[in-house]
Design a binder for these strands. Sequence first.
RNA 1: GCUCCGGUAGCUCAGUGGAUAGAGCAACAGCCUUCUAAGCUGUGGGUCGAAGGUUCGAUUCCUUCCCGGAGUACCA
Length: 547
Amino acid sequence: MMHRYIESAFKQALQDIGIASPNLNFERPKIAEHGHLSTNIAMTLAKELRKKPIDIAQDILSHLSVNTSIIEKVDIAGAGFINIHLQPHAFHLAMRDMIASGAMYGKSTIGSGKTANIEYVSANPTGKLHLGHGRNAAIGDTAANLLEWAGYKVTREYYFNNAGNQMNMLAKSIFARYQHILGNAEYPFPEDGYHGDYIIEIAQQAFEKYGNALSEETTSSLETVKKMGEEWCFSSIMNTLKNMNIHQDSFFNEDSLFTDGTIQHLLNELKEKNLSYEKDGATWMKFSEIDESLTDRVIVKSTGEPTYRLPDIAYHRTKFERNYDLIVDIFGADHIATIPDVKAGLKALGYDISKLSVLIYQFVTLWDNGEQVKMSKRSGKSYTLDELIEEVGADVVRFFFLMRGAQTQLEFDLQIAREQNDKNPVYYLQYVHARICSLLRQIEEQQIHIQESYDASLLIHSSELQLLFTLSRFEEVTIRAAQNLEPQIISEYLREVASAFHSFYHDCRVLGTESELMNARVHLAMLTKTVIHNGLTILGISSPTSM
RNA sequence: GCUCCGGUAGCUCAGUGGAUAGAGCAACAGCCUUCUAAGCUGUGGGUCGAAGGUUCGAUUCCUUCCCGGAGUACCA
């Protein structure tokens, strides 16, 4: 937001010294003495111009005509940095622009007119969601929010498979528990079956609904319990997602790819294009020919069943056929191996795979009282996402999943998450919102009249200027977060906003000061409220009006 | 073995090829007759896993190695 006041001046100066299309970037110096903005343009031009960076910087400055009401001074430092010190007036202008954006402040247009499909969660209906799904859901939903804020029209998609081996195992597991309920204690539980208590619950429901009518092990009775299992699991999953403030708008059933002939069509096409071959009774895909770092893989087993790669390619193909400008997958680290194969397949079919962006997140480990909480799917002892939300609340769960980069392993510390105090970082952000709401309530109670117009030039305290400066970065932060699909950029930024606000609120009284100054400070507080609220909304976290 | 992701303060983690590497927590010292102290201010704390290389400049890019994790099926 600050750039716009100075960018054109620099471009003009560069043009004057013969640089037509410079790669001009402004950074935020870490040290206050280095100004508010800085550029390394002189250093990047050094090679091209074959001159010393400091001389180039000097050249630029001598051609730079600065608006002294906005720029206090420009100086050269270090190896050739050009540091720009802004006048308070620049912040006041920025404040006007930010407030003019209203509730929309932070939205951008980089994705305007474009569509995006983002697939996340995509858990099969074989059980409850666990912590890994939680991280997937939080990242996916927030990435979708980021794209919407950047102007994209976003489809939130959930891909699931209600056929195949895993579902058969679910059916067998329920059926075994059902047999046990019927008193047939010797009925063997499948070796790789699902051990969770929910299986017993579903079996109990089957017993209540059908009595002993399913006692004979037939395809039909297995189908019946499978259907019950699917419905039970989906209902549980949807409920958990709802608790996390997540709604998806497209549910894609893998099985439909088989029933509507998409898979067969793809197989025929791969054969025609000479991308597949038969060996040992199976159908193989020539991945090694598309990309020599890959190896050929079976796509249809000798039993006639496809492997997961085939529907994965077919499914992603539908996303390309649905003409999205951007396609995003959120995958756990355990799925990492399939991505190169899917990409290679799509590339060979002629699609532009640069549209496909795959976000990989690493695993979550749960800690409590300094000890790791072991999660085992086999024993069914895994800590479910529901239990976590129940224990610490959806806001804390979402924030904890988002406050770290996706590519790092996440340590979820239950002890900290449980604490309703300053140790819990999410409250630090929410407290800003609650404090401002409280301030506004008091203004109303005391019947203080706040004017719509305000004199921003009264805001000259260093805490006020620091807060304005931080707020002015919001739009560029949402853009960077959307471009990189990194929610954690938002959570880091909001912590900076919170810190700047709390300092301001500590240093500068609002109520009881001279009325023009109070008026300006109230507008600054309201602007902060907008930024915090918008940021928390992107993260899918509530903005409490009191705490 | 091979592929991918990590390794930064006591702990958990930020860090866009830039300047003196940051934050939170923990530790220590202060700040409430006034807008929520779930807050503010200050102090201490570093071989950025190791070694080479590229660069005017490397925590960041490249190579090799070490440690932790994940994946390497006619499982998904």
